[in-house]
Design a protein around this nucleic acid. Structure first.
Lengths: 251, 251
DNA sequence: CCGTTGCGTTCCACATGTTGGAACTCTATC
DNA sequence: GATAGAGTTCCAACATGTGGAACGCAACGG
């Protein structure tokens, strides 16, 4: 573990989270380093164009270079490009957020997201990551994943809210049910008031590589709406698979 | 400049650009470092969760953590959230890409982008950065920027294509014209075949902080369409300013 | 089947690069 | 005008990052 590298990334992360410009001393304090140490790191990050001093003041802020490079990595994923128009289409029919979920290690990643016009509060932002087993999009991917992955997830269960699955046996039962019914409904396992419905998406070999989901507040997204939403999701996934060069061509 | 920090970022950047998983030796070669050096760096980046070894092979790939953190920084920008639905609306009326442009230092940043259904090839991807003076969205922001910024841009002109502005006097004349007519048309100054139309967006103090643009291939986006597009852009900007808590409330 | 090649990884000792204290300057505050 | 706390610079000490060499392994070919 290279210490200075670790410090640099920690620093950048805390600055991103902070949102606004920060003072050197505060950055130093927050990351438990001396001012001169922080200074050197900031100097380096500035040369690399990840950080900048705002105008001619003494405040530091992050540039959008992280976003640029991150988006580049995700954008290579042709699935995101193919799915986008279909997500918009779906979002027009539903008064909830619509998301494309991908797997990143043991985490679910919101690779793209459309906010429906009516939605005020956003639950999961673009780029948000959450444990696979706790969100509908993640469960959908997990259900059809190789046993090795499921096993790894089962040995890494964490409790985020009261409703989070923490028992491997319960999780496995859920996954079994998901495989049978072909869709997922998940409620408040990472955000108390959130509910999500999700459906898996397959590549040309039939492997599940993503999931499309609809999510919204628990009290607006009633169980009576689920069947209709599942139908729309299946339709959307079918269209994405058709539009995506590497998509599933099966039945 | 902290050497190891710089190396770590360079490494991540090259891995992001590469797209797929890479071998340690290739990474080392590409960045001109020894294999053991590359190994230590990768080890560190792995612990920090920016890099991972694919399954149980010996290949390394980037995670989406950069995207997550980058998106977090951009997402804080409430303008992006407010603008998104309006961009979708605009994209439905136009067979071209629609983009929200922000300024990041001396660069223009594509903070959000909607691809119209008809569009096949994408010219600028989400997160793309380009010199302010060379793209329509950037010019729009520059035209109403404080003199200090214009001056800084003028002393940093670069030539990307044959059509790039490289003469400060010419640029200043363009900006003058833009201020008079209230919109920008830019052609192929960074991508040979691209053409963009753009209009500025103001915050509650009346300062131009972003620009909305329509861009497409030079041969489809004819001059006869420009007036209609400008009208739609003005309408869109007005709606975004109204929806955005911090938007311009003027005339 | 064994020698060769090239890989990822480990080990180690050296010297380099990173670190933090102290000093300096500057601005804001009282 | 004194004080406090900021950002920055300087420097010496030594912890840290570095790269060469060695190891184990897999793929390949004679």
């Amino acid at each position: 573990m290279l210490k200075s590298v670790a410090k640099a990334f920690r620093m950048l992360e805390s600055m991103s989270r902070a949102g606004g410009p920060m003072r050197l001393s505060d950055i130093a304090r927050q990351n438990e380093m001396t001012r001169s140490n922080a200074f050197h790191l900031l100097q380096t990050l500035q040369e690399l164009d990840y950080v900048r001093q705002v105008d001619d003041s003494t405040l530091y802020e992050t540039t959008y270079k992280m976003f640029e490079i991150g988006a580049l990595a995700v954008g290579r994923n042709s699935l995101v490009t193919a799915a986008h128009p279909e997500l918009i289409r779906l979002a027009e029919q539903v008064p909830e957020n619509v998301m494309l979920n991908t797997r990143d290690g043991l985490m679910n990643l919101v690779a793209d997201r459309i906010e429906s016009r009516s939605v005020v509060r956003t639950l999961a932002h673009l780029g948000a990551r959450a444990p696979l087993q706790l969100v509908s999009g993640g469960k959908a991917q997990l259900a059809w994943a190789p046993e090795a992955l499921i096993e790894r997830v089962c040995t890494n269960l964490v409790k985020v809210t009261e409703r989070s699955v923490t028992d491997p046996a319960v999780l496995r039962a859920q996954l079994q049910q998901i495989r049978e019914q072909g869709y997922v409904v998940a409620v408040g396992e990472v955000n108390e008031g959130a509910k999500g419905v999700s459906v898996p998406l397959r590549d040309r070999h039939g492997a599940v590589v993503a999931a499309v989901s609809i999510s919204g507040p628990i009290d607006r997204l009633g169980d009576d709406q689920v069947p209709a939403y599942v139908g729309m999701l299946h339709e959307t996934v079918k269209r994405i698979e058709a539009a995506w060069a590497d998509g599933w061509r099966g039945d």
